[in-house]
């Protein structure tokens, strides 16, 4: 908004760094265009002050690249599915009626919860607090009265289990 001035200054001052970051993400020749796209995304920046402007910009750049990857993957999947004329698809991105999507989403959630439960109560709690409630690792360690390294290893196990489940469901 009007005082996006501060953010714009930081953006311009760190243009080269952000370009390098996008390039490191595999942006290749498109890095300049993606930087432009990034600015379009954030040019209507918050009216309130952004606490860590550079970290904010990096995070936005990171999200942009991950979103782009997801969009490409979804498009590929759709083409593939269309050619096979199958009904199976991933939640949130298909043209399938909402009810069916909800059913699939519930089934996936059920499977994810079962996989989490299999890791044990502590790992499950740690994952939920971190991934779903957005609580920092340090706070989780304090809440549960365990060491930071315990939280780290629980998180690694849980994220790994979730990502493996997702790959498995994807392959079905």
């Amino acid at each position: 908004m009007r005082n996006s001035g501060g953010l714009e200054t930081v953006f311009l001052e760190n243009r080269d760094r952000l370009l390098r970051f996008l390039a490191a993400h595999g942006a290749g020749e498109g890095a300049e265009d993606l930087l432009q796209e990034l600015w379009v995304r954030i040019s209507a920046a918050p009216a309130g002050p952004v606490a860590q402007p550079l970290a904010y910009l990096y995070r936005a750049a990171n999200n942009l690249m991950v979103d782009r990857h997801r969009a490409l993957r979804t498009a590929e999947r759709r083409d593939h599915e269309w050619s096979e004329a199958t009904g199976a698809t991933v939640p949130g991105v298909s043209d399938m009626p909402g009810g069916e999507r909800t059913l699939i989403a519930r089934e996936r959630l059920r499977q994810a919860e079962a996989a989490l439960a299999a890791l044990g109560t502590r790992a499950e709690t740690v994952f939920r607090r971190h991934r779903l409630d957005g609580v920092s690792q340090r706070e989780i360690a304090m809440e549960l009265g365990v060491s930071l390294s315990t939280v780290e290893s629980d998180l690694r196990r849980a994220y790994r289990a979730m990502i493996e489940l997702r790959s498995r469901l994807d392959a079905e």
Binding site: V66, A105, R131, L132, Y159
Partner: peptide, 10 residues
């Protein structure tokens, strides 16, 4: 991307 999908399930 996988992690983002997992977030959507929850």
């Amino acid at each position: 991307a996988a992690d983002a999908d997992v977030g959507e399930w929850f």
